[in-house]
Write a protein that binds this DNA or RNA. Structure first.
Lengths: 206, 206
DNA sequence: TCACCCATGTAAAGTGTTACATGATTAG
DNA sequence: CTAATCATGTAACACTTTACATGGGTGA
C-alpha cells in the first residue's frame, strides 16, 4: 500500500470520530452484554456470574467483583434487568437478577447488528460472544444467517491481510513477520470454522 | 468439574486480588508497551504511530489521538521516552519521540517476563506483542526460548479446555458449543504455529 | 477558496483494575 | 475458634472512547 492509501485510511477514521454522534440510548459495554446473555439463559446472582467467568473459558471477562457488581447496577438502572432478593435461612441474602422485556430487546438488538469491518479487525471477541448467545435468543436460523455474513466479510478481509504481509515482509524482523503470520493464520482458521459450522446448521435443518 | 473445583478456583482468584500488591514502579498498559516497542524500532511522532495503528494489522490498538497522545505523555513523565521537537519549514512542528535508557530497560523487562497461565487465558495478545518485538530487542535466541516456554504452557492448557467442553457439552446450545470449539481450535492453531516457528528459528541457527 | 493533508492536543464520561471491607454459616 | 464458603459491595486510580478544538500547508 502506498502512502496515499495510508493517509486515506487515517482520514476516514478521523472523520468517523468526528461524525459518529451516538444516539440517545446509552451504550452498553461488552461485559454488559455478556451478563445480559447469561441472565437470559438463567436468572443468576452476581456471585453465580463471577463463578462462570472464573471457571469456564467465557471470553476472558474478569471475574472481579469490582467489574461485575457495578455492571449489574448499571444494567438495573437502565431498566434492562431486575433483582429479586432471596432471603434464605442460613446463608446470606442473595440478589438474583433476571432480564426485563427491555433487557431482552437490548440483547436482541445487539445480536441483530451487522458484522462490520471494524468488528473483524478489532472485536472478533464481540462477534464470537454474539454468536454464542444467538441460538438461545434468536434461534438457529439467525445463527446460520450470522455465519453467512461472517463468512462473506472474512473472505474479503483475508486477502487484504496477505497484501499487508507481502508489503511489509522485507522490513520486518523474523519474530515480527511470524507474529503477523500468526494473526493471518488465526483468521484463516476462523474462516474454516465458519464454513464447517454452516454445514453443521444445514445438516440440522434437513 | 465438580462444585468444589469451581469454588477452589474462585477462591484462588479472590486471594490473588488480595495479595498481589504491585510495587513502586507504575504499571504500563499494553498500549504503552506497543509504543515503546515501535519507538525502539524507529523514533517517531504521535502521528506516525497513529498511522501504524490505522493502516497495519497491529494488534488492534486504537489509533485515536485521545489514546495515543496521553499515553506518550505518561511514558515521557515516567522518563521512558524523550521528545525532540522538529521545526521544519513548511509543515507544522512535530514531536519525535525516542526511547531513553530507562525505556529500553522497561521494554526488556517486559519481554523477559514469564508466560503465565493468566496470559494464556486472557491476554494472548500481550504474548504475541511481546514476541513481535522480541527479535529486535533481545535477539533471536530469546525469541526461540520464548516460543519453547509458550509451547510448554499451551500444551498443558489445551487438554483442560477439552475437559471443559466435554463437561459442558450437554448443557449448551449449538451456537454456544460451536463458539467454545472455535476458541479451542484457535488455541490448537496457535500451538501448531509455535511448533513451526520453533523449526524456523532452528533452521536459521544452523 | 475549498478540500484535503499533516500534526497535536484536551475534556468529559464511562469502564476496568486493584485493593479493601463486611457479614453469615458450616466443617473441622 | 478458625478456615473456608457463600455473598455483596465500595473507593481510588488508570485507561479508553468519543467528541471537540486548533493550526499550517498544498493543489485544483
Amino acid at each position: 500500500m502506498g502512502l496515499a492509501g495510508a493517509s486515506r485510511i487515517l482520514l476516514d477514521i478521523t472523520s468517523r470520530y468526528d461524525t459518529l454522534r451516538t444516539m440517545s440510548e446509552r451504550k452498553i459495554a461488552l461485559l454488559g452484554y455478556a451478563l445480559l446473555g447469561l441472565l437470559h439463559q438463567k436468572p443468576s446472582s452476581g456471585y453465580d456470574l463471577r463463578k462462570i467467568f472464573a471457571t469456564t473459558p467465557m471470553g476472558g471477562f474478569s471475574d472481579s467483583p469490582g467489574a461485575i457488581y457495578p455492571a449489574l447496577q448499571r444494567l438495573q438502572q437502565s431498566g434492562l434487568i431486575r433483582a429479586r432478593v432471596e432471603d434464605r435461612a442460613g446463608l446470606r441474602r442473595r440478589r438474583v437478577f433476571s432480564l426485563s422485556a427491555a433487557g431482552v430487546a437490548a440483547l436482541e438488538k445487539w445480536l441483530a447488528g451487522p458484522v462490520t469491518r471494524n468488528d473483524l479487525m478489532r472485536h472478533i471477541d464481540d462477534l464470537m460472544l454474539r454468536f454464542a448467545f444467538m441460538d438461545g435468543v434468536k434461534g438457529q436460523a439467525a445463527s446460520l444467517e450470522f455465519l453467512k455474513n461472517f463468512r462473506k466479510d472474512l473472505s474479503a478481509y483475508i486477502p487484504e491481510l496477505h497484501g499487508h504481509l507481502n508489503a511489509l515482509r522485507e522490513h520486518m524482523t523474523v519474530s515480527g513477520r511470524l507474529a503477523l503470520e500468526s494473526g493471518i493464520l488465526s483468521y484463516e482458521t476462523l474462516l474454516h470454522w465458519i464454513k464447517t459450522s454452516i454445514v453443521t446448521y444445514q445438516k440440522i435443518k434437513r
